[in-house]
Write a protein that binds this DNA or RNA. Structure first.
Length: 536
RNA sequence: GCGCCCGUAGCUCAGGGGAUAGAGCAAGAGACUUCUAAUCUCGAGGCCGCAGGUUCGAAUCCUGCCGGGCGCACCA
């Protein structure tokens, strides 16, 4: 389905507009979804709409009669070559040669802005992702979080939102104390405590610390966390994932934000005491059960810090707070939204994105199982481009399984190279055009596009809808699906037709198509954090 | 028990109400004197988990069931 209700650079905008006004004329104003789409079957035209069938019950006329009336309006458009009515009342449209030329011209003129849309623009969005505790290297589960969260951020940014990326880390509490003890134990060659962290990276962190053997535990902990965070940051940067803010839980406590948030919730009337503990009545806003803020022993819970953190996000000016969490945290959705509501905030401005878990050879990852794969190992094994492509290739609602040996074995046939190769081919042609003095500007005026050229241009024209939908659905895998289709269309085009044709007009059209394809590949790959190489 | 995600080709998965359900991989047959063969072309492979419902029209929306994953702390 295509939807063009915002002023975007859109190749089928005039078609959409003409249909809309024609339909409005028939109904007296009301316009249902036009359902303008690209049929899978080429016999059904380049674009098709089933709007006549939807209109039939409304107007009390037969779908084919309505289609006939609409056909009369659309037929005159310069972008339309032919219209036919098919089946129960489909309107099948074929685009004119003129459309192909003007669409290419438009796309090239728009450049990197092509596909920019404002359907969801304007929000100040805080995307919090990864946020793994700094007690070890990031696992491949966090790698999925990183790749997905980063792509969503890039998509929202392209959609005109002001995006801030934040990593929230836990640097207080039992786990962190255990981490500090583990670091010290490794350094001193002692036994690590029960439930401590045995990973090799702990030893590396320990050895990087300039601390005396008898330094206080707090120093081992704090310094260890700092080094670990730095390790994590470096690994993420290698994956082209960067953050604007690194926020520590500790600072929420020390700044008084936690206490302030509890008081704010109390003044909203949602805090109560029971069994010696202080509770937040999140059930008022749809949570399964109420949540403890202050334990009977007086300690704050992790959720209390969460509450303060939500408060902080909106106080800093965010109009939307996105959380990216693994499926094992899906129970947090209601809790976080209810927490926001208890602070008097809009629960709908809290959006929790859940991605399904990553398994290793069909099994859940775990230190006890000894099957942990880290982000660094994945990047090392198959490279950053293949790793990123692999991590967002499928829907985030789909479970992801990895066998590292198999991944390495298969990495050469990772589809990312197929797509990148298409870009390298584009650049190769453009280089050759310059070398041979065959480069031209413009799309020409008389070239009659052939099948593969038309297929390619129509594919390129899908971009505005693809990128807008991907952003709205927080579904970067749609970019991946599309960019692969684009690469396939380009490879076929390249195989069938010679670009640097002796006829200047043909050459101009084809060079324009190559240029537009190269830019589209760069743009789409950029949104998933993959490079578009000039040579391979 | 309750909640979230998934079930589509041998395998991994796209398909947000439209016409004959697609791709990659695997297996099969072909194509380089050319701007890169990391490519292209062709064939084969399907009760879209099951059963109802809504609709002119359902893989898609609704309900129930079956199967798989995950979660239901005064842990972090």
């Amino acid at each position: 389905m295509l939807c063009h209700d915002s002023p975007v650079i859109d190749p089928v905008a005039d078609l959409h507009a003409a249909l809309t006004s024609a339909v409005a004329g028939l109904t007296g104003g009301e316009v249902p979804d036009l359902a303008l789409e690209r049929p899978a079957n080429p016999e059904h035209g380049d674009y098709a709409t089933s709007v006549a069938m939807r209109l039939a019950p409304l107007l009390g006329k037969s779908p084919r009669d309505i289609a006939q009336e609409l056909a009369g309006v659309v037929e005159g458009l310069p972008t339309i070559a032919s219209v036919e009515i098919a089946g129960p009342g489909f309107l099948n449209l074929r685009l004119s040669h003129d459309w192909y030329r003007s669409t290419l011209t438009e796309m090239l003129a728009a450049g990197s802005e092509f596909g920019r849309h404002d359907r969801i623009a304007g929000a100040e969005t805080l995307v919090e992702f990864v946020s793994a505790n700094p007690t070890g290297d990031l696992t491949i589960g966090s790698a999925r979080n990183a790749a997905y969260g980063d792509c969503v951020s890039r998509l929202l940014d392209f959609a005109g939102q002001k995006v801030t990326r934040e990593y929230y880390f836990n640097d207080a509490g039992n786990q962190i104390t255990l981490f500090g003890q583990s670091v010290r134990a490794r350094r001193l060659g002692e036994e690590i405590p029960e439930g401590g962290y045995p990973g090799d990276e702990i030893l590396e962190v320990a050895n990087a610390l300039d601390l005396a053997d008898d330094a206080p535990l707090d120093d081992w902990t704090a310094r260890g966390v700092a080094v670990m965070i730095d390790r994590i940051r470096t690994g993420l940067e290698r994956m082209r994932v960067t953050f604007d803010l690194w926020t520590s839980e500790q600072t929420l406590h020390s700044s008084g934000a936690v206490t302030a948030a509890i008081e704010r919730a109390r003044s909203e009337g949602h805090v109560f005491e029971q069994d010696g503990a202080t509770w937040l009545r999140t059930t008022t806003f749809g949570d399964d059960k109420d949540r403890v803020l202050l334990k009977a022993d007086g300690e704050t819970t992790y959720f209390a810090a969460d509450l303060a953190y939500i408060d902080l996000k909106f106080k800093r000016g965010a109009t939307r707070a996105i959380y990216v969490l693994g499926a094992d945290h899906h129970g947090y959705i209601q809790r976080l939204k209810a927490g926001a509501a208890c602070l008097g905030l809009d629960a709908d401005a809290v959006e929790v994105l859940i991605y399904q878990l990553v398994t290793v050879s069909g099994e859940r990852m775990g230190k006890r199982r000894g099957n942990v794969i880290t982000l660094n190992e994945l990047a090392e094994a198959i490279g950053v481009d293949a790793a990123r492509y692999f991590l967002v290739e499928r829907s985030h609602d789909q479970m992801l399984d990895i066998d590292l040996d198999l991944a390495v074995e298969n990495s050469s046939k990772n589809p990312v190279y197929y797509v990148q190769y298409a870009h390298a081919r584009c650049q190769s042609i453009l280089r050759k055009a310059v070398e041979e003095g065959l480069a031209v500007e413009g799309v020409g005026s008389s070239h009659v596009p052939e099948g593969p050229e038309m297929t390619l241009v129509r594919r390129l024209a899908e971009w505005p809808d693809v990128v807008a939908t991907a952003a709205e659905l927080r579904a970067p895998h749609r970019i991946v699906t599309w960019v692969h289709e684009l690469a396939a269309d380009f490879h076929a085009f390249h195989h069938d037709l010679y670009v640097l044709h002796e006829d200047a007009d043909t050459r101009a059209f084809r060079l324009s198509a190559v240029r537009a394809t190269g830019e589209a590949l760069t743009r789409a790959l950029g949104l998933i954090g993959v490079e578009a190489p000039d040579r391979m």
